[in-house]
């Protein structure tokens, strides 16, 4: 049961990830990326990381992807199609990436099978209660620094996106 679910989610994740980079229309890419994030959230639930699964859905599929969709609709993009002059470059990059991925997969697949050890296993690791305690004690300073980062990112985005004087439209 769990195995079937794992393989189904993995297949869906790889398929939708491929469609992200293969589809011509950027809006389809965004929708396939959202599907990928949903399958990854399913994986997080399988892995007993409920908090991160929900955060992944809210932050990635909810906030970030809506930002992407708004930008794409706002910019009125044309489809960019693969041109013949870059075919050699595509083949080369594909070869390099497949070689790299193949080597890593070969190594990992032949490595000894690793499963969880019974001795000190804690199934409550991924719950809000446990993660919140760690986040607010051990990682308090980084957590506060992230808020400073958000403030600077917000100021930067507003400054970059501001309309400049003398531009005709937009």
């Amino acid at each position: 049961m769990v195995q079937n679910l794992f393989y189904f989610l993995s297949f869906l994740a790889v398929l939708s990830a491929l469609m992200v980079i293969l589809s011509k229309n950027p809006i389809h890419s965004v929708l396939y990326l959202i599907l990928t994030f949903f399958t990854l959230s399913g994986h997080y639930i399988l892995l007993n990381a409920q908090f991160l699964s929900i955060v992944n859905l809210i932050v990635y599929a909810g906030a970030i992807m809506v930002l992407f969709l708004f930008t794409i609709m706002f910019l009125n993009l044309k489809d960019d199609s693969f041109t013949g002059s870059r075919l050699f470059f595509h083949l080369g990059s594909g070869l390099v990436v497949f070689t790299l991925a193949g080597l890593i997969i070969l190594k990992v697949a032949t490595a000894p099978i690793a499963v969880a050890d019974d001795a000190h296993f804690d199934s409550q690791i991924g719950m809000v209660e446990n993660l919140g305690k760690v986040l607010y004690s051990k990682f308090l300073v980084p957590f506060e620094l992230v808020s400073v980062l958000f403030l600077s990112a917000m100021v930067g985005a507003v400054m970059l996106g501001r309309r400049e004087k003398g531009e005709k439209n937009f």
Partner: peptide, 23 residues
């Protein structure tokens, strides 16, 4: 998992600035 939480937060900030640059 805490590290993943930070990665998500930083990705959100990065997307906001990056999309502003693309615009």
């Amino acid at each position: 998992q805490v590290f993943v939480f930070f990665i998500m937060a930083i990705a959100a900030a990065e997307v906001a600035v990056g999309l502003a640059i693309i615009v």
